[in-house]
Design a binder for these strands. Structure first.
Lengths: 221, 221
DNA sequence: CCTCGACGATCAGGAGTCGCATGGGACCCA
DNA sequence: TGGGTCCCATGCGACTCCTGATCGTCGAGG
């Protein structure tokens, strides 16, 4: 799951990014509206956290422009508490939810999770079952049969991405784009390393290699 | 399409059942949470309409129990408008959508249809069937009858291109352009090589040669 | 009906690519 | 400072892909 934070208050942006990264999300941060719009249109984010008061292009306009361009990525607006900006206007321009500053970090995470779950296309349940594999994306826990597997954050993210598209072939480039953030420029070998780890910790035949195309999580055992 | 209604207000439950039956759905009704959970785990429903305030086991717990058991049937929650129950909590436990009482019948039907549609489009990958040939482009898998065929990346690409234009004659130049780099300058014999491989791995008469023009995937056996 | 030429099919082998495993180093957090 | 995660690099093994050559087949015209 990959998030974009568009927020010009750098301290806030940084602390959010840090916290959400710790939750296991891949997080990118930009500080003005124009760049936020560029990024959101070119990179595959699962959610955008969008401040309203921004240099360059304000949050409303970024939001409206995204919707106009046909992007339906969930957008969580951050509004100032003084009511100078209207939350209803935010929802009107196509935002999915809003949060009034100041807010607690716990609330933010809850909203983010709720939005991701609500918008998820492939079955809204946070629990995915394929054969004897069970993945709880909300709790970030994995079971193989009765046994729970201990995965690292990245391992889980890779597995999550495969599970969300179970049965389909997912290319390494696709996994890279969704699981790693913008700053990453390494080679796709890293995906192989993580798939290898998942096979070792789970079961080797769970993730099939489709040579020249990518990986596929097997649905039928 | 088979629906389960778990709702203890018998008048409401009955009127919903009647209406949805008229829409062409097969509808079962139960009046308490425990029985709802039993039914939902043992019978194959396409959607569950679940009231929150229920005798026996409340809606949240039914929903959570279903998810925990690995069922990903779409769940539409019915919540009381007084906010005594939290809609966010409903979504947290794994519901797909919620509706606040009182609601109009039209809205309910719309939501039901939307949920069923969302599920269908999400799960369905583009599968092409021609005679006993089945090609799943998302999974990159090919079956001939019951037997799955193992194709290499290039073989699959060539077949995919033919399948997308099934019944039409596709020239070798056309295949070259789409499957190979546009800059490819090798000789067209390469296409013949791959068609040959496909015939060997699938069935010889599946791909017809049209001398001087190209190849055609047979649609009728 | 036969012949010949052009087009297509098939085969095998080597070059190159792709994927896997592994170990080590950088970094972070306790 | 120590444990753990994450990323990088390397070497190996296996498979794919393409080339070129030979063989087969179709069909038009003599």
């Amino acid at each position: 799951m990959r998030l974009l934070i568009v927020e010009d208050e750098k301290r806030l942006a940084l602390s959010l990014a840090k916290g959400l990264t710790a939750e296991g999300y891949a997080v990118d941060v930009v500080h003005d509206g124009r760049e936020g719009l560029d990024r959101a249109t070119t990179e595959p984010y699962d959610l955008v956290i969008l401040d309203i008061m921004l240099p360059g292009l304000n949050g409303y306009r970024v939001c409206a422009a995204l919707r106009a361009a046909g992007h339906d990525v969930p957008i969580l607006m951050l509004t100032a508490k003084d009511g100078e900006y209207d939350e209803a206007e935010g929802l009107d321009t196509g935002a999915d939810d809003y949060l009034t500053k100041p807010f607690s970090y716990v609330v933010l995470v809850a909203r983010v999770k709720a939005l991701l779950r609500r918008r998820r296309t492939a079955g809204a349940s946070p629990v995915h079952v394929h054969g004897d594999l069970k993945v709880d994306t909300a709790a970030r826990r994995v079971w193989l049969g009765e046994e729970e597997a201990e995965l690292t954050a990245k391992e889980f993210s890779v597995l999550e991405h495969l599970v969300l598209r179970a049965g389909e072939v997912v290319s390494k480039a696709d996994i890279l784009e969704h699981v790693w953030d913008f700053a990453y420029e390494g080679d796709p070998n890293i995906v192989e390393v993580y798939v290898s780890a998942l096979r070792r910790k789970l079961r080797a035949d769970l993730i099939r290699t489709v040579r020249g195309a990518g990986y596929r999580l097997e649905t039928a055992p």
